Simulated scan of single mutants.
Amino acid sequence: MKELYAKLRTEPFIITGPCVIESREMIMKLCEKLKEITERQGYTFIFKASFDKANRTSITSFRGPGLEEGLAILAEAKARFNVPVTTDIHEASQAEAVGKVVDIVQIPAFLCRQTDLLTAAAKTGKIVNIKKAQFLSGYDMEHPVQKVEESGNNKIMLTERGSMFGYNNLVVDYRNLIDMSTFGYPVIMDATHSVQRPGGLAGKSGGDGRLAPSMAYAAAAVGVKGFFFEVHENPAEAKSDGPNMIPLNEFENVLKKLKRVMEAVKG
């Protein structure tokens, strides 16, 4: 795990997967394909899927298989394909069990100020990826960072996923990426959640997935080397976040172009 974090501090990496675990079969198939694509394009690959989407707009929305079954599926994917995995926690009580399986514990944006959640994640000893709340600036992330640091964990990453702008819309201020980089930790651009339209489809979130690649390219232009994408074989049939996802058959071309942007900035 120390080796993984050292790599994430210096090399381009991709966190990707579906929004939620829809089935074991879907996860195994998608993890295998995403590993092939990302590694072929020269990125470190981390597989992500949620065992429970506790923050869905509607009480009737699909949430996932739950903690026990979801972690078993993630553990199988990790072992079968020899890849690091990550998932999000919504309650401090979930941290210990999740920390036994994943390499990175993800803190949802809505919950990034929750002290108990941050300290519980920190105490797992795993990398903690804190997603910036839609209502915070990049500099405001100083305080979530301090909570993890003061809980004894300095393996931290910070993720930009847009700021609330008016109703059912987000905007990305790329100054936030630059500001968060001053804390000395890896910064990630969440390209697909940044084009989400929260609650914008009458009881569920909408989005504009066609814009997601551009979010990543612009982040690469300001020096970001970590990227988060939700990808699905058929976004129209995804059980969560379909409108802002990237179709699997388009993903490799996105990564190719992203690599060219990073090379241009570096050169």
Rank of each mutant, 00 (worst) to 15 (best):
N129Y: 01
A133G: 15
M180L: 13
I188Y: 00
T124W: 00
A121C: 09
F165V: 09
A77K: 05
R175G: 07
V105E: 05
Q134M: 14
G70F: 01
A191I: 09
K126S: 04
T87E: 04
V172M: 06
D140W: 06
P108Y: 01
K100H: 07
A97T: 06
Q106C: 03
D116C: 05
I156F: 00
I178R: 13
Y174F: 15
A120Q: 09
V101C: 03
S163V: 15
Y167C: 11
K78Q: 12
S151Y: 03
V85W: 01
A191L: 08
S151A: 11
C112Q: 03
R113S: 11
C112G: 06
Y139I: 15
F135D: 12
D179Q: 12
E91H: 09
G152A: 12
H143D: 07
G162I: 11
N176A: 10
I188R: 02
N154C: 08
L136M: 15
E76K: 14
L71I: 05
L71W: 02
V83N: 04
K147M: 07
T119G: 05
T119Y: 11
F81Y: 15
E142Y: 02
T115K: 11
I89P: 03
L74Q: 11
T192C: 13
G99Y: 06
V83M: 13
V98I: 05
E96A: 10
N82K: 15
E76C: 14
I127P: 05
